[in-house]
Amino acid sequence: MAPLLDIRNLTVEFDTPEGTVHAVNSLSYSVEAGETLGIVGESGSGKSVHILAMMGLLPMPPGRIVSGEAWFDGQNLMDMSDRELRAVRGGQIGMVFQDPMSSLNPVLTVGRQLREVLVRHTDLTGTKLRARMIELLEIVGIPHPEARLDQYPHEFSGGMRQRVMIAIGMACNPRLLVADEATTALDVTVQAQILDLVRQLKQDFGTTVLWITHDMGVVAELADTIQVMYGGRIMERGPVSPVFRTPHSAYTHGLLKSLPDEGARAQRRLYQINGSPPNMANPPKGDPFAPRNPYATERCLNEVPPLRDVGDVPGHKVAAWYDLPALLAQENEVAK
């Protein structure tokens, strides 16, 4: 079966006074129907930008889509007119953004904002429309939905607002739900509730989810597949547990090592990846992570590594010239 979403060779650049910023570099990946893909990366890794580009939401200029295709359900989103794209957005692809405090229009009631997406993409009217709105708020776990519809966003807490955003994103039973840092602005307990909710929705409606985050913990909990991005490229990708167990990219390894582990003594200083993210107006010639990578070889600095299969686990791929597990094993030997 063809994948639900297939991105091929997507390259996005920004024109800035400092020169051209290479935000996304020939990015290719696909998502199967029903799969949950967690995309992890730090600021500037291109994780949000490529989604905006795909959805036709990238401000152009300064943004520029140099090349690429984004096949969704057999159609290339890049070839669509603005009108066709608008029919997809909110209908077949739902989106949830980072900041629930500002994602809702402060002067419109929650009901009006929920109604807008339903009117735009469905034929519901009158009492059926209202019933669907109430049902949606119930699905995302908002108590007293009937009364809540006529309230303004400032009468909702942060977590409740994010639930409303998810209700809006899920309103038309989308094939794909894209969440861009959807739990980042929420505190940990609320975050856990939202993750539970998304898991429940996945189970009930079989929605494919694309979860963009910088939080490894969230990915571990929610995703089937993890995709680590850096410098507008995929560094590593594969089923969540093998990637967490034996990372093959030094970047993934560094990210996992910098997580505070449970039970560890509080005295232990957290690991940090040295250096700072690359300036994408003047990107490194080879592997973008090479300048910060203690395992980098001469080749890493000069040549961009292609994404290769790791071998033992199907679907586990890495972009690296070195063999990280072997290097780590060597290190352990030496330490002993």
Partner: peptide, 13 residues
């Protein structure tokens, strides 16, 4: 503001 982007994301013209 982000709500404008959200409006785009639900397909508003």
């Amino acid at each position: 503001r982000e709500f404008v982007q959200s409006a785009h994301a639900i397909g508003a013209s």
